[in-house]
């Protein structure tokens, strides 16, 4: 008698387990996470890890607003205590870089406790983001992205930014970025900047006379505002 009870009980347990797994996945699929939380709290069965992981994948693949996706993944992580795979996190973060405001990137990083390995794997996208910020004079944001990611912007990009800022008269952006990053311009950057002004103000320059006044104005202000001297000053 006892020998037949064992397999029956096992079958019942297996059936219950299967039902529980199906129910968990259905609730995840239908975004009914509050109910899922109640069921987990009321049930002593171990959570079906594969089902939860499939849920994360589903949330990445389903079409929905970014914030809905983020809050679903965050909530699922909180109630199941099963960490999503790095691939899922990478896909989530990649989908938001440059599209969402930086503050949301921070919220996502903090909310999901994103590891530095994930951030490092997105270095290329983050460098593009830096470039975008620098082009748009958002030097405060550059420092904030650096603080969040701990990934420095490419030094060549920084020197190019200094050069472009100084050439185009964006001296505030130059002052802001160099102060924030505490990286000085290299002698080569300074040489290139002044070389630009020498060429632009040379007698054979194609720049119209009216525009040259503006060029001269910025040329004269660079030294006074940045302390960077022209080693071979212009002769007017």
């Amino acid at each position: 008698m006892s020998s037949s009870v064992g397999p029956v009980n096992q079958m019942i347990k297996l059936k219950q387990r299967k039902e529980f797994t199906n129910m968990v996945f259905t609730l995840i699929e239908e975004h009914r996470l509050t109910e899922l939380q109640q069921i987990i709290e009321a049930n002593d069965q171990p959570l079906p890890e594969t089902g939860v992981r499939m849920g994360y994948r589903l949330y990445i693949d389903q079409e929905m607003a970014f914030r809905t996706r983020f809050f679903l993944i965050k909530k699922l992580r909180e109630i199941t205590r099963i960490e999503p795979d790095e691939t899922i996190i990478t896909l989530l973060v990649r989908s938001m870089i440059q599209v969402q405001p930086l503050v949301l990137f921070k919220l996502v990083c903090d909310g999901l406790n994103i590891q530095s390995s994930v951030i490092k794997s997105l270095n290329r996208e983050i460098q593009d983001w830096y470039k975008d910020m620098i082009d748009n004079n958002q030097f405060q944001q550059v420092t904030q992205l650096l603080t969040i990611t701990n990934l420095s912007p490419d030094p060549v990009m920084i020197q190019d930014a200094y050069k472009n800022y100084l050439i185009s008269g964006r001296l505030i952006s130059y002052a802001g970025l160099s102060k924030q990053l505490e990286i000085p311009p290299t002698p080569e950057t300074i040489r290139q900047v002044y070389s630009h002004f020498h060429q632009a103000l040379a007698p054979n320059s194609p720049i119209p006379a009216a525009d040259r006044e503006n060029v001269m104005k910025w040329y004269k202000r660079i030294e006074s505002m940045t302390g960077i001297a022209d080693t071979t000053p212009l002769t007017e």
Partner: peptide, 14 residues
Amino acid sequence: NICGLGLPWDNTIF
């Protein structure tokens, strides 16, 4: 400011 729509030089932090 927090959403990145401040003036670039305003000392905005998170």
